[in-house]
Design a protein around this nucleic acid. Structure first.
Length: 205
DNA sequence: CCGAGGATTATCT
DNA sequence: GATAATCCTCGGA
């Protein structure tokens, strides 16, 4: 069962990888040995030097350096003074690109997730990029780790791909003052009707 | 159900 | 010094 996606999966454009990641399985092994698994149901692509919404739009900085690195690594960064967000780095070494994992559907380790999301209903555990990071115990300590091996206790496995007729796209969330066309470009992908997609997605079927 | 506003701090200009 | 790839709470309908 330990079979992370190969590095070649992450090598294409972030736009391709974001679509392909739907239905794949995010796996986390906790220090106590518990295994958490969730099916990826929502993603966003951050692509290229000219994408003004991407941390990679400026040249290399200490924070965005992982985006410039080889594909198949984790890019985990801190925002809004409270939250870590988890991305999978894409495209060849030197090209700044990543896919933000925005929501997963809990499949395994539900008791461990519940313990990390106290007092909340199951559909609030992982229905947002900051929420799923909390439920899975991900943090800055996981930044830059290799997702193509099990050594880092965090990886993505093959799952049941989502067919085209079950995929929806729309603008990315939280664009704020980002100028057009980047503000509205439909670089967010989610599974139609899935109850675990984020609130920001507007849960249209 | 939905929208508005506050929390809180690393990072970049 | 301003801002942020967010989340939560609260008030109104």
């Amino acid at each position: 069962m330990l079979r992370p996606l190969f590095q070649s999966f992450y090598a294409p454009s972030a736009l391709v990888v974001a679509r392909s990641l739907l239905g794949m399985r995010l796996v986390r092994v906790l220090p106590n040995g518990a295994r958490l698994m969730g099916r990826i149901v929502e993603t966003e692509a951050y692509h290229g030097l000219d994408d003004l919404a991407s941390h990679g739009h400026s040249r290399r900085t200490p924070r965005n350096l992982p985006m410039y690195g080889p594909p198949g690594r984790a890019y985990v960064y801190f925002t809004y003074g409270n939250y870590w967000l988890f991305n999978a780095v894409c495209e060849p070494d030197g090209d700044p690109a990543a896919v933000l994992i925005r929501a997963v559907e809990p499949l395994e380790g539900l008791d461990e997730m519940a313990a990390r999301r106290p007092g909340r209903e199951i559909h609030e555990w992982t229905s947002g990029p900051g929420k799923l990071v909390l439920a899975f115990g991900i943090s800055g300590a996981d930044n830059t780790l290799d997702l193509t091996t099990t050594a880092g206790n965090l990886w993505i496995e093959p799952g049941d791909p989502v067919p085209d007729d079950r995929v929806r796209t729309g603008p990315r969330v939280g664009m704020g003052k980002t100028p057009e066309p980047w503000h509205s470009i439909p670089w967010r992908w989610w599974e139609a009707g899935n109850p675990f997609v984020s609130r920001g997605s507007g849960k249209r079927s």
